[in-house]
Design a binder for these strands. Structure first.
Lengths: 249, 249
DNA sequence: CCACTTTTTGCCGGAATTTGCGGGAATTTG
DNA sequence: CAAATTCCCGCAAATTCCGGCAAAAAGTGG
């Protein structure tokens, strides 16, 4: 990986997460810590980041502390994203929806990963586009402004023509009896198609949404292969899902 | 392989992958590294790529700090956008490409306008999404990272199925003899399809690009209905185009 | 067809950049 | 305070860059 690429990647990470650790960067980018240190030194000299012992911070981090609730939910989603990343292997075709958890996943992709991401979510496309090596395929159709994803028959048809290795689904509500449910008709049509077009369906959700309901069903529990939450895999809240034979991460 | 061919190949690679390595290029094209280095130097001098130690990066890669105020000759583009807006009427279906001029147009749309915009450009989609009343249709396909638009056969097919009222084309080079020309093969395919699928073709270009050339032809002068520049409509620089029967705004 | 110019290309040697490594200092943490 | 981690400095190896040079290729004009 070229020096400038590393710099761009580091800057991107700093701007997204407000901090980076030298130790995690050097395993992400696969170079020695010295190289990372030199990169951070240069970026620091240019005023692009603030170097601290062990890593670097965003320059805009000065005094601005974001609200505790935001920090809290974000770290949860980050934990989920980390687990999700471990399922991805080079060369995979991966369908994803939108949603903030998916965006966090997009931001956590290791920079040397070579995979193809397929989505109709414009914010997700933006994140994927920043990645140096992954390919992005956009599902086209009419934009739903509220959810910022493409919805409609064309989009559903396109997804049906695909057979992906993985499907990451950000989930609004999940319940042992009713499966995944949601509240937007068009979005549900898309999610259904995505589930049918994937070999493996992975649900990402914060624990807060477990055992909640929405009006429209996306799929039953039986169609889910894996659930990822910020909780440890053996948490009792997930016991019922484990008993259904679903893998918990 | 001819020099021009190499340049086109290199540009294509850069547009697809956002970077090229001198070392991999010289085995791909089967020439010495020195030749590659000279090629990259020339392309860098033309601003087509950014040369770095070990290869080159896409110029858009550097635009991490993409802020509208830093767009090249923005005031001219704003003037162009104002004129272009006057062509749009309620209920129209409008095909647009990407490019900074198109983005300026998207920002200049009057808030009560009710029209349908169709594009494969992700930045353009973002702008259109902010608008309260217009509908946005996204052309799906694989993302070309540097141009940030979807390119490929699917996208071309989709466009062919459409018959739009208007097509706004951001233009890289226009010449009375060679028509509109560009330097990215995939982007040219899209533009060609857009032109064929529109009742009226409108070119947006800053005066600087008039009478310039790029390697690949998009269309001849005869296929253009209207040209919009920041110059007054009767400027002598546009006389030749007026004589071809093209409307000048 | 032949001389002549221009462009392009490959090669060479020295300079510059980048990167990893080791040793010792500095900082953090418990 | 002591252990662990991180930082800093210098060095060496590998890679890449650059300018100049000559051969090959392509274009030119008689």
């Amino acid at each position: 990986m070229l020096k400038r690429e590393r710099h761009a990647y580091i800057l991107h990470q700093v701007n997204l997460h407000n901090k980076v650790l030298s130790s995690s960067l050097c395993v992400d980018i696969q170079v020695s810590e010295d190289t990372i240190r030199r990169d951070l030194q240069e970026l620091s000299d240019q005023g692009k980041v603030i170097k601290v012992h062990g890593g670097a911070l965003s320059p805009s981090f000065n005094e601005v502390y974001y609200s505790p609730s935001q920090v809290y939910s974000r770290s949860e989603k980050k934990a989920i994203a980390q687990k999700a990343v471990s399922l991805i292997e080079d060369g995979m075709f991966i369908l994803t929806g939108g949603g903030s958890t998916i965006l966090e996943l997009a931001r956590s992709l290791p920079p040397q990963l070579k995979a193809t991401f397929i989505t109709g979510s414009i914010p997700a496309v933006l994140e994927y586009m920043h990645h140096p090596t992954i390919d992005v395929i956009v599902i086209g159709d009419k934009i739903s402004k509220s959810s910022k994803i493409t919805v409609g028959g064309e989009a559903v048809d396109k997804i049906r023509q695909i057979k992906a290795d993985l499907c990451f689904l950000g989930v609004n509500a999940i319940d042992i009896g009713h499966g995944i449910t949601d509240n937007d008709w068009d979005v549900v049509q898309l999610k259904k198609a995505m589930i049918e077009s994937s070999r493996k369906v992975v649900c990402l959700t914060i624990a807060e949404k477990i055992n909640t309901l929405q009006p429209i069903q996306v799929c039953s529990i039986g169609q889910i292969d894996t659930i990822i939450t910020e909780l440890p895999a053996d948490d009792p809240a997930l016991q019922a899902y484990r008993e259904e034979g679903i893998e918990i991460l």
